[in-house]
Structure formats: structure tokens, C-alpha cells
Computed example of a mutant assay.
Amino acid sequence: MNNLQDEVIAFLSRPSSYGNANLPVERIETHGSVIFLQGDRAYKLKRAVAFAELDFRSLQSREKACQAELQLNRRTAPTLYLSLLSITRQTDGQLALNGCGQVVDWLVVMRRFPQDRLFDRMAVEGRLTEPMMEQLGAEIARFHAKAQITPSFGRLSDLYEEIEKNHREMSRYHLILDAATIAAIAHASRTLLQSLTDCLEERRRAGRVRRCHGDMRLANICLLDDQPTLFDGIEFSERIACIDVLYDLAFVLMDLQHHGLHRLSARLLSSYINHSGVEEDCKPLALFLSLRAATRCFSLAGAALRHADPCKRYEKRAEALQLMHQALSDLQGENPILNHLAMTGAASYT
């Protein structure tokens, strides 16, 4: 974070900056953005930071990312993503929203929705239902059918890179995660990927690699106007977002299973297959589920070490351990969703 953004954040934290000093401002912070909530709007600011997959340090890069976020997320949430808004420096030196002075930063303006409509919260509270999964499966299938085909991505080398990244990142957290289990996950992943070479290449050539959502976790799905709605897709990395459609779907399937919602996960997959309009070969799904679990595992392990609250540290540590074992179980053919569909004949496994 730089001094200018500190000033911008202070400005956006004041109710008077939005023209209505009577409505409080709430703030949500992530590693890549700060979201300001006031009234019926949410204002998303890109942090001036750089990580492995993104670099928002320049004003130009943040403007480009905001434009891409608006465009890409309108594919799934056109009534949620409203516009872009500039933050300007006026002649008196003060900051203003969409003023006439020099632009110092950019915001994505979104329609605000109640936080209890987020699917991760609904999962914890037991409020997700099978009809919702039926709707969600149909929506994801519609989205994937219309998404841009990107055959230059989703190659075997990209998936091998994901396996090695997961192994490398999980190994950093040896105080939490078991080294032998991490090694077993990496070895089994490489072996399974090698056996899927022909299948995955055929899927890529057939147009199953597309510009997807890229981060389809329960936390990035909400109930908007009584419809399951995908939002906050990846805009900053084509490598992350241009993937096999089943790899995209695997994130939410894995997340449901992580919450113990195996029946809902199976219903979602069945709905997706039934609405996809193509014969879907789910043979790579075990690998994709394991990769998603491993990625989420090291993310939560890192959060466990960073958290100041001992209770939160314990909670994140427990989740990371559960996901580590889930990643290995997927590779060993012990995933309930695959067993369920194999028995019902809703998809073909060869």
C-alpha cells in the first residue's frame, strides 16, 4: 500500500464522501482489494499491490483491471456490476468521486446485497437446498456454454504447474501440514494426470477449455433476486481463468463437500450435466477436485499462521488439515460424489 492509497482509503471510509453523511460506511478487506459498503451500493478499490499472479501497483493497471472485472462479471451478474467510478484530485487538493480533476484511482461500483445471501454463509447455516443446486447447475452450464473458447490455455503443462505449485505451497506450512501426505498428493496427482493425457487433450481440442470464472467458491456465489448468481470472477490472470469447464465447476463441488454437503454437491453436478447440452466426460473430475482442495488447503494454512485470534487460528488449521486429507482421498477414488454418479448413471466414467 502507498501513501496515496492510504489517503484514498481514508476518503472512501468517510460517509460524507458519497454525498450522504447519514449512512455509515462498512469496510471489507481482502489481499487484493478494499470494498466500501454504503447504502445500496458497494465500491471496490484495487489495492496497489503485486503478487505472483497480479500487479496493481500502477494506476493504469488498476484501471484496466476494473474495466476487465466489470466486463467479465457482467456475463454472470449483469444487475450486480453497475459501472466504473473515478476518484479525482480537485483544484483545492481534496479528493472527489467522479470529479473534474486528475484521476488518482478507480472503483468498481456494485449493487449491494445482504451478506447472509452469500452461499458460504448459507452452507454453514444449513440454508442451501437441492432446488438451489438445480438452479445453480443450470446457470453454470449456461455460462460455460457461452464462454469464449481459449484453446491456447489449459494444456497439460499448465496442470503439471498447478500440481507443483500446490506441492511447493503446502510444503511451506510444515508446522501444520504433514510432509508425507503432501508428497503422496503430489505423486498421485502426477500419476493421474499422466493417465489423463489423451482425455484432457481431446477435451481442449473439443473446446472445453474456456474463459471461465476461475474462482467459483461458495464465497463467490450469492442469492440475488432469488437466483444463484456467480460474481467476483478472476479478471487479472488468463492462466487462472482460461481452464477446462470441469476444473471451474470443481471448485464449488469441492467446497460443498468440504462443508459436508455431499448430497448437494452431487445434485449440482447432476444438474450441470443435464443442462450442459453436450455429453460430459467426467473422468478428469477426481484430479480437478483434488487440485482445488489442495489449493484451498495451503491458502487456509497460511491464514491460520497469520491470524491474531487463537480461535480463528485453530479453526483455519483444522480446515486446512481436512482439505489436505480430502485432496488425497479424491485421488484414491474415495469421493462420494463420483461414487454417487457412477451408481446412478448420471455420467460416464471410463
Results as ranks from 00 to 15, higher is better:
Leu4Tyr: 10
Ile9Ser: 08
Ile9Leu: 04
Phe11Arg: 09
Ser17Gln: 00
Ile35Glu: 04
Asp40Tyr: 01
Lys44Ser: 00
Lys44Asp: 03
Val49Ala: 07
Gln67Phe: 13
Gln67Trp: 14
Ala68Tyr: 06
Leu70Thr: 10
Arg74Lys: 05
Arg74Leu: 02
Thr91Val: 09
Gly93His: 02
Gln94Tyr: 07
Gly101Tyr: 06
Met110Ala: 06
Phe113Tyr: 14
Phe113Ile: 13
Phe113Thr: 11
Pro114Ser: 00
Gln115Val: 14
Arg117Gln: 15
Phe119Leu: 06
Met132Leu: 11
Gln135Ile: 03
Ala138Trp: 07
Ala141Gly: 06
Arg142Ser: 08
Ala145Met: 13
Ala145Phe: 13
Ala147Arg: 00
Ala147Gly: 01
Pro151Cys: 06
Glu162Ser: 14
Arg168Leu: 14
Glu169Gly: 04
Ser171Pro: 07
His174Ser: 15
Ala184Ile: 08
Gln194Met: 12
Thr197Glu: 10
Asp198Leu: 09
Glu201Ala: 07
Arg211Pro: 09
Asp215Leu: 03
Met216Ile: 07
Arg217Cys: 13
Asn220Leu: 00
Pro228Thr: 01
Phe231Thr: 00
Phe236Arg: 09
Ile240Lys: 13
His259Asp: 12
Leu261Asn: 02
Leu264Ile: 00
Ala266Thr: 04
Tyr272Gln: 09
Gly277Ser: 10
Val278Lys: 11
Asp281Lys: 01
Pro284Lys: 03
Ala286Tyr: 07
Leu287Phe: 02
Arg292Lys: 08
Ala293Trp: 05
Ala294Val: 13
Cys297Phe: 11
Phe298Ser: 10
Phe298Thr: 03
Ser299Glu: 15
Leu305Gln: 08
Arg313Val: 00
Arg313Cys: 08
Glu315Lys: 04
Arg317Asn: 03
Ala318Trp: 06
Leu321Cys: 03
Met324Lys: 14
Ala347Asn: 04
Tyr349Cys: 09
